[in-house]
Design a binder for these strands. Structure first.
Lengths: 260, 260
DNA sequence: ACTATGAACTGGCTTGAGCCAGTTGGACTG
DNA sequence: CAGTCCAACTGGCTCAAGCCAGTTCATAGT
């Protein structure tokens, strides 16, 4: 149980020592996922340290994402749930016109109820990175922005922001809230001569901004995956851009693509 | 500068108040990337709090990835560097046999010197997820594992672990340390009748495990991107598997793929 | 011109005390 | 029996003090 070799002086800081011991117990399954740790006060007494020190140890584990403290209840070993995997096939032709949403299908596959919520639909001035990728030169309120949040049961899972050049979006009904995200809108683009031919997705990960953490209710120690998606038509023209900000503890990505 | 509305009582915790003020200064550019914050002791005195409280504020920002404390030097606003973007075209035929490595090319593009280091090459018993995806049923030391670390200048950037069924790897020279990662090895597979036809990549993000944080020297508040790559031949057979663990503050992914 | 020393700064970590705010479950009340 | 209330638990946060360990740089000694 104790990590240090006999004979050698153990010069680890007390907080690290407690953290190492707990981590070891978690990794060996001695502390099962979902189970409750000893309370801060108990840990402190057991190791002969101040409560602050036990607390620091727990924070170390929380930062690694191993553990989630819950105010008034205790500290729990995080159980990693199966990820909702969004694949590049979510834009596949096979879904077009079926009314099926890959996100909702994935939720169903895991016995969860998926839904989405429209935060806002506005005609705005695009941020620089969006304007650049959409090739929008005139910046004055030239894009339609639609902001959705997707839920699985009672957890917000991803925030989806779609940008569409206003010239494409005008008079299409895209302002209506009952169009289920981008899965229902691609017909509109085809009517205007833009058939989705390729997609380009720039992926990065980071800790959530304060506002994103509020929206997505991410526990501490959970990063987000940030996907900047661009839809290209046959001529390589970008006609639609979507930014996904996804909770990394609930979602993942899957690409199954040909080698070119 | 102060975030709270006049007249209303400001019931934010002192640590959050300090953090909010600093965050605001960072977001407005008042505190430029790379610049040094006031010391913990100064911040504490300025806000009339204990040093612990100023310290807690800084830790909040560090968890968000806005700031990096450096022992003995100070706390600095993190400057986000351009990401080294690895695309799905890194497996493209255009690189085959050229000796060019997309990773090293990306480094060069940013004026950095890329190199790689071989941690280990061993014949081992595969972990369950690897065995499953490779379709290896006999688990006894049936795969070759090769572990590399890629560097850009003096920063470790990604840890790359390649698994190859031993039946494929035997007698191929893959045990040699001077083969530059997987970029040089695909010819071997073609000799054995496995031409790379599709790739399948499962992507997730998380905080680094303690050991990964040591290897990659990730500052606190920096997650890793975890990519499980599988190479498939014409018959859909998985003949090679590679796991990338990448520092999210230095690397990103790019997929430019056809819609099928 | 070089090197060694050390003071004065930085963050890292701990102590032990206290109060606040959610949560839980049992006892008491209608 | 259903509800209310409260004690005892949980983590959240703060204080004021102290010591340790890196870093930096001016100064003193070669």
């Amino acid at each position: 149980m104790n990590q240090h070799k006999e004979g050698e002086p153990d010069d680890r800081k007390p907080s690290r020592k407690i953290a190492d011991e707990l981590r070891h117990a978690i990794e060996t399954g001695e502390l099962a996922p979902g189970s409750k740790l000893q309370s801060e006060r108990e840990l402190a007494e057991k190791h002969g340290t101040a409560r602050n020190t036990a607390r620091a140890a727990i924070q170390l584990l929380a930062e690694e994402g191993l553990v989630t403290p819950e105010h008034g209840r205790g500290v729990f070993v995080r159980k990693q749930q199966p990820l909702i995997r969004l694949g590049n096939d979510r834009y596949s032709h096979k879904y077009r016109g079926t009314g099926l949403s890959p996100f909702l299908l994935e939720c169903a596959k895991q016995g969860k109820t998926g839904r989405f919520e429209v935060l806002s639909i506005e005609r705005i001035q695009p941020p620089a990175d969006v304007a650049e990728r959409l090739g929008v030169s005139d910046k004055t309120k030239s894009v339609l922005r639609r902001e959705n949040v997707f839920w699985a049961d009672d957890d917000p899972v991803q925030r989806v922001t779609t940008y569409i050049p206003w010239t494409l979006a005008r008079g299409t009904g895209l302002l209506q809230e009952d169009i289920p995200h981008q899965y229902g809108i691609h017909g509109v683009f085809e009517d205007k001569g833009h058939v989705m031919h390729r997609i380009r997705e720039e992926i990065s990960a980071r800790m959530p901004r304060a506002e994103e953490a509020r929206h997505l209710r991410t526990p501490p120690g959970v990063p987000v995956i940030d996907v900047l998606h661009t839809s290209l038509d046959q001529t390589g023209n970008a006609y639609e851009l979507t930014r996904f900000v996804m909770r990394a503890d609930m979602t993942g990505l899957l690409y199954d693509v040909p080698v070119e």
